[in-house]
């Protein structure tokens, strides 16, 4: 079972402003204060996009304001219009993905972003399938913070999603494309770690659960084509040298 945290009880979002626009005005007013701390955390990460310590600290600093927004979103999700709200949040995420894909442009990175977003959507599908059995009011912020400290999977998810939020912010500001690419790559590695941690706990989330075998084959073909294009002879020599000949080497 996936633990209840600000990320998991709330909703996926790379662009917090876009998410806030979905909230009724009175709810939006309640979380007006969150804009600055989230922007500060994003600024910190955009200054050092490849630094894991900065990612850890910035994503942690952003947890409280993001958590406040997510709790409001969770209230909407618990409303009778659950299906409508869910569809609307998913369309938000797809719009975020389109914008960021257009910015990074490189097919390999666009594809990595697609993997990340497909995983996140699969993650929320899993979470939302249990939502009716979770008492949202019982998930206090203190409990939420403690849970994030305890679960390696939740921590990787927090870092992965925040790295994508920063990449999305770089795209909105039209900043350095290389930084956005780095952040997408970092997000992939974090979300992959998250996937493994949840699988270890018995929750297997497949990023492309609904694809046909032809789609899967096509996807794998594109990974291989990009590796073939870019791998050098010296890198292949490194690969050969990395064969496991003895457990004592």
């Amino acid at each position: 079972m996936i633990a209840a945290t600000p990320s998991t009880i709330g909703a996926p979002a790379l662009d917090v402003d876009r998410l806030l626009q979905r909230l009724p005005a009175d709810l939006r007013a309640q979380v007006k204060w969150t804009r600055k701390p989230i922007t500060d955390a994003l600024d910190a990460l955009l200054q050092s996009p490849g630094d894991p310590d900065v990612l850890e600290a910035a994503s942690r600093n952003a947890m409280k304001p993001i958590g406040a927004i997510m709790q409001l979103v969770a209230q909407l999700l618990a409303s009778p219009e659950f299906a409508v709200q869910r569809a609307s949040l998913m369309s938000n995420l797809e719009a975020d993905q389109r914008d960021l894909s257009a910015f990074v442009a490189d097919p390999g990175v666009v594809d990595t972003l697609d993997w990340c977003l497909s995983f996140i959507k699969g993650f929320y599908r899993e979470v939302w399938s249990h939502l009716q059995s979770v008492d949202l009011s019982a998930v206090s912020r203190d409990e939420v913070a403690r849970e994030v400290d305890e679960s390696a999977g939740a921590a990787a998810f927090r870092r992965g999603v925040f790295a994508l939020m920063a990449a999305s912010e770089a795209a909105r500001r039209r900043e350095c494309v290389d930084d956005a690419v780095t952040l997408v790559n970092v997000a992939f590695l974090e979300l992959e770690e998250c996937r493994h941690a949840f699988a270890h706990a018995g929750v297997v989330i497949l990023p492309f659960a609904d694809e046909t075998s032809e789609q899967r084959l096509h996807r794998m073909g594109s990974y291989v084509a990009r590796m073939r294009e870019s791998l050098t002879d010296s890198e292949f020599r490194e690969l050969d040298a990395a064969r496991l000949t003895s457990l004592r080497e």
Binding site: G108, T112, N185, F188, R216, Y223, V224, R226, M227
Partner: peptide, 17 residues
Amino acid sequence: KRGAMKRLIELKKFLES
């Protein structure tokens, strides 16, 4: 490193499949 990171991620996506 940037190039190697891209290739590592392509490999990981391939292996994940």
